[in-house]
Amino acid sequence: MIVLHASFPIDPDKREEALDLIEDLVEQSQAEDGMIDYRATTDVNDPNVVRFFEQYEDEAAFEAHTQTDHFQEFEAALPDLLAGEPEILRFDVESATELDL
């Protein structure tokens, strides 16, 4: 399984535009083959930071996602929406276990 965690600092003046693109990106990405989970949320401490959490079954699913029209549209628009450098972390995971609180 591949897990991505990405943080994007969004320009406050472009926030609504960014959130509209992100909403479309998330909706379409969740329907992709090989997608386990795909979510975006705003940071509770800074509403201009959007964090993505993505889980893919394998490398093929991740690569397929990067070739979709909705991903490429978001990627092309991203430079104009950012207020700083994004941080993107990739984790290659052998197993995952749900924990009880």
Rank of each mutant, 00 (worst) to 15 (best):
R15K: 11
T41A: 14
E94S: 05
E27N: 11
V44I: 09
E63N: 13
E23F: 11
L78F: 01
D37P: 02
A60S: 07
E17F: 07
Y38M: 13
E23Q: 15
A83F: 01
H65V: 11
T66K: 14
R90P: 10
D20I: 15
P79H: 13
L21N: 07
D69S: 06
D37R: 10
L4Y: 04
R90E: 13
F91N: 06
D46T: 07
A64P: 04
D100M: 04
A96Y: 00
F52V: 02
D69L: 09
E87K: 10
A6Q: 13
E32T: 02
D33K: 15
A64F: 03
R15V: 14
I10L: 13
P9N: 01
F8L: 14
S29L: 08
E32K: 14
E87D: 10
V26H: 04
L101F: 02
L81N: 09
Q28D: 11
Y38R: 02
E98P: 00
F53N: 01
D80G: 15
E27V: 08
V3E: 09
T97H: 01
Y38S: 09
F53K: 04
E57Y: 07
L25H: 08
E87M: 09
I22N: 00
I22W: 06
D43Y: 02
L82K: 11
I2T: 07
V93A: 07
L89M: 13
E73H: 12
D43N: 09
T68H: 03
E17A: 15
N45E: 14
F52C: 05
D11N: 13
Y38F: 13
N48L: 06
Y56H: 04
L25Y: 00
D46V: 02
D11M: 00
E23P: 11
E17C: 07
I2R: 07
D43M: 03
P86I: 09
L25A: 01
I88L: 12
A60N: 02
E85R: 10
D24G: 14
D69N: 14
K14I: 02
T97D: 00
E27C: 01
A6C: 12
L4V: 01
T42E: 03
F8E: 04
A61G: 15
V50P: 13
A31D: 09
L101Q: 11
H70M: 09
V49T: 15
V26G: 01
L19M: 09
N45S: 11
Q30F: 04
F53G: 00
H70V: 05
E16Y: 08
E17Y: 04
L99I: 10
E98S: 02
Y56K: 01
A31Q: 12
H5V: 15
Q55K: 07
L21Y: 05
G84R: 08
